[in-house]
Design a binder for these strands. Structure first.
Lengths: 249, 249
DNA sequence: GACAAGCGATTGTCCTAACAAATGCATCCA
DNA sequence: TGGATGCATTTGTTAGGACAATCGCTTGTC
């Protein structure tokens, strides 16, 4: 008793795996937290005990814990120990596709591809994608629905050699299709605004004429800074809003 | 020549300082990048050479470099080396107040305080602020202008003991006033949507009736997870949009 | 009883060392 | 000439150890 309120995380480490030990450990702890096995405020065993118990070196254990501190899932204090962070200060990563968002929230996303064409891109598009002027660009226009209800009208521009096939887009989100062909999105700039819908947009979204819509313009990059995709989307404001989490320096 | 295109960073390390060596090193490199001494794409000397030259261990040098990779300032590839990242993938922190944003972009912000009142908060407000039901809450309604033009209608709710004075709010942004009284905002959740303006809102914002407006609902927390402020704002969509940068896990 | 000093616990910093894996380039062979 | 092979370079992973700094608690003193 007394110090029995420290938690020992149940972990199975696979030393033959190509996944680094520290990452196996950090994801295991993360799952324990997200699965509720570790409650906010719960104290963890100290890093030396953790390392010894799992037969890893202290730097490896430290690195796993540090990864979770960076994610805001753990809080550590010198002389005190390591605790599970309160839920609301946890960093939630946000560069998720609309498709994944909908699936996660238990709704059933579907997509109609309205247009899939190849043509030399306008100067605004090639500039956003950092391509030579006049380069061929694939234009994709899709209507995204959730539970059969129109939610967003999405227009994407992608360099020809990176574009997924028409067939793939009906089944999955754009980002998922890109990942399947080995393209990893790392970062995106986006701008969110609002305006009233045009008659054509309102019709497609099955909303009132001149209804307010959210507009989102996004350019996505891989980790080397190469521009992958530029999109201009509108969302039914009556059915959708953006949630973000911001952190101070 | 040939490999003369690798840069050696000029660094002075102070081993008596309480600032960790890796942090001294990373900030020195960061300054070199931001100061333009290291251009995007510039290749850095490898970590072993860097460590030897500065008489630090390789882990210390690695940690400094890793810190900058996490910030998006450097890109590393196994077998290749370390390069300065393109400007556009650098992480820019985003939890800035509208007031600061406007000032930074060279516009002249001003504020009219429309309401400053103290009353028991409704249940939605006290819940958002994590206060006991019926607690006294300060309600602040302000009209934010840029170069004399209305831009946003902001409503904020703050616990009585944290609220800045009426006078402070006319001169500076809310977050600035909070910081002056020792309250540091660390994180915020926010939700961005859109709708059409009511007649009263349109009049205050000097916009057309039923114009599209951006709505933003935000709750801000300090680093311990204590809720500081809850705000419900509307922005003239014709004059303002939100820019954000998102990062993948 | 209050305040300061001391001590154990815990995380933070820094070091040396070894091997693994990916990349780009040169080389060799068909 | 073209493709496969191998090698040097560079970052990634893991280990083990030493000491420093900080925190909370206990103890001791006035």
């Amino acid at each position: 008793m007394g110090s029995d309120d420290v938690a020992t995380v149940r972990v199975e480490l696979d030393r033959t795996s190509s996944i680094p030990l520290y990452h196996q450990l950090s994801t295991a702890i993360e799952k324990s937290i997200e699965g509720g096995a570790l409650a906010p405020g719960q104290r963890l065993e100290n890093e030396i005990a953790l390392a010894e118990r799992l037969r890893v070196s202290r730097p490896t254990a430290r690195r796993a814990l540090q990864e979770l501190v960076d994610l805001g899932m753990l809080v550590r204090k010198r002389g005190v120990g390591t605790q599970v962070a309160p839920v609301r200060v946890r960093r939630r990563v946000d560069l998720s596709s609309l498709y994944d968002d909908l699936e996660r929230s238990g709704r059933k996303p579907s997509t109609s591809v309205l247009e899939y064409s190849v043509a030399p891109g306008g100067s605004d598009i090639t500039e956003a994608l950092d391509l030579p002027g006049g380069s061929d660009v694939v234009t994709i226009r899709r209507l995204r629905q959730a539970d059969g209800e129109p939610l967003a009208l999405m227009t994407n521009y992608i360099a020809l050699e990176l574009a997924p096939s028409y067939e793939q887009l009906g089944e999955m989100g754009l980002y998922h299709a890109l990942r399947d062909s080995g393209v990893e999105i790392h970062m995106a700039h986006q701008q969110i605004g609002a305006r009233t819908a045009t008659a054509a947009e309102a019709r497609l979204l099955e909303d009132k004429p001149k209804a307010a819509v959210l507009t989102m313009e996004r350019t996505a990059y891989d980790s080397t800074g190469r521009a992958i995709e530029h999109g201009r989307h509108i969302y039914r404001a009556s059915r959708y809003s953006f949630s973000t989490t911001l952190f101070a320096p």
